[in-house]
Write a protein that binds this DNA or RNA. Sequence first.
DNA 1: AAAGACTGTTTTTATATATGAACAATGATT
DNA 2: AATCATTGTTCATATATAAAAACAGTCTTT
Lengths: 307, 307
Amino acid sequence: MNNDLNQIRIFCQVAQLQSFTQAAESLGIEKSTVSNKVSQLEARLGVKLLQRTTRSVKLTDEGAQYLQFCQQAMRQLELGEALISDMQQQAVGHLRVAVPQNFADVMAAMVVVPFLSEHPKVTLEMQQGAQNVDLIKEGFDLAIRASFSEVDDSSLIYRKIYQSQRIFVASAEHVAKFGNAANIKQLREQPYIASYAGERSDTSFNQVYVDGRWHTLQARFTVNSIAAIVQSMQANLGFAIMPITMVRNKLASGELVQIAPQVELTDSVIYLVYPSRKGQPAKLKAFIDTLVCWGEKMMRKNHRRAD
Amino acid sequence: MNNDLNQIRIFCQVAQLQSFTQAAESLGIEKSTVSNKVSQLEARLGVKLLQRTTRSVKLTDEGAQYLQFCQQAMRQLELGEALISDMQQQAVGHLRVAVPQNFADVMAAMVVVPFLSEHPKVTLEMQQGAQNVDLIKEGFDLAIRASFSEVDDSSLIYRKIYQSQRIFVASAEHVAKFGNAANIKQLREQPYIASYAGERSDTSFNQVYVDGRWHTLQARFTVNSIAAIVQSMQANLGFAIMPITMVRNKLASGELVQIAPQVELTDSVIYLVYPSRKGQPAKLKAFIDTLVCWGEKMMRKNHRRAD
DNA sequence: AAAGACTGTTTTTATATATGAACAATGATT
DNA sequence: AATCATTGTTCATATATAAAAACAGTCTTT
């Protein structure tokens, strides 16, 4: 290569140690290489940088002046690498996360606040509703997915952090009016509030897997907001399918009740999706840890209640 | 190479142009090389620096921060190269010159003063009497030699800048006492003042080449100072061999007279010796020019008088 | 004084790297 | 909507480069 930057590093080392041999040793290369690289640099610049006898190495006037700039540059690069290595050990910088609808609300208190207070040097940007974006294309560090996207990108890692049973719920008044359905057929006769209109890839969310096949429930009302669904149920608009975790408090207080407990639903699963594990900055590792921890805590809570 | 600085230059270019292909073109290398080098850098740092789709290239948070340092370093190196190139075009810096005895006196007014006033950014260090030093070892930029050293270093350039006839001179009183010698034999019978005790390599200076062989004159007094020789001659101590230029004034005034004009002496020659012509800094070129110019001027003066 | 130890350079050879074509993936264009 | 142009990556190969040893000086030491 005509303009080889390595020449400069080598020149710096030789000038500093005043020796080709020692420079070669300290850089872990051959002294013949050192000799050649320095000669190349001198040839390119058209100036002798080092006056060398077989016994001593001295900087020329030009070499001494040039060295100042080279050393400054080397120092700058070292600072840059130090910063990088620091970013891998200490959580700093900006984190862009894509989450499904509703998740920002759910996680704000339980994940975001503790995470940001634990890592004061991190800034977080959470884009809600960016469910099926291309992580890399859009520049996200991480995405939370409520369903397993069919994308088979080997550079992306899928990690399940949470799994919870889903149940049919409705208001007590709704049950009084329509009765507690015992099977799919009976459920189909009741008005259904769908949680997400989703595209094809997300239909499983509003489908019920029974007797080896998927049954689609026709929704009276579809909205991608849990709060809206809950309110609609309390207004006796219909029943809905909810992760048990989400409505546990309302079941306890009697605001909502479970219906059709005999009909088994597939679980609600939450995945983390993020680019290849290699070279993750600390900020990302920290956020993943926080999410995994949160998921485990949530699942433990379910178990305690279930037992 | 594990830690290849060229990776950094390439990364900078890609980041700046937001394109691997354009970076490759601007650097005159293959895009495959660009791709590999960036990957290597990321692998070494353990961080993704660029989020790349087949269609777009974006800096990651880490990449953006690292780039700052890299660009700073690149800028620094450019400044260094600009300085070097400037030093080759403009005479600046320090110049170390080795000259024979007496020469500093001779050149002070005719060479040094005009040179330094023409090149205000140059500082000059003139070491007198450092006749046979190793230019490179001692860190000289240039040497003036009154005789052709036998060193056959191909990296050194010898350049004749001045050649002048030498003559035998003495005081009028000396001639009256000893007569005007007609040949070597008669000269040998007169007391001789040698200009330089010299080592072997310099004996030619005090030898007379006549009839195809060298004749050594035994000196009554040897001193490496022209002023001392002239004074000694005026005190009738003996005759001496002098470049005609040096004593022209005294010949004109009658203070000294030429003797033995029939005996031909080898010319006095002045050489410039300096390291290989390649990559000479402007300060050196300028000084060489000044010296060459001075030599020509001196020789023209001789011719005018001789004609 | 002469041999020895160590320097930077040169040269040959083995290794590593840049290359260029084929590839896979994306966005623009028709 | 489908083709086309262009992107970044991959892979086999030719080139260039680093390595190792021999070399040619210089200084020290016995």
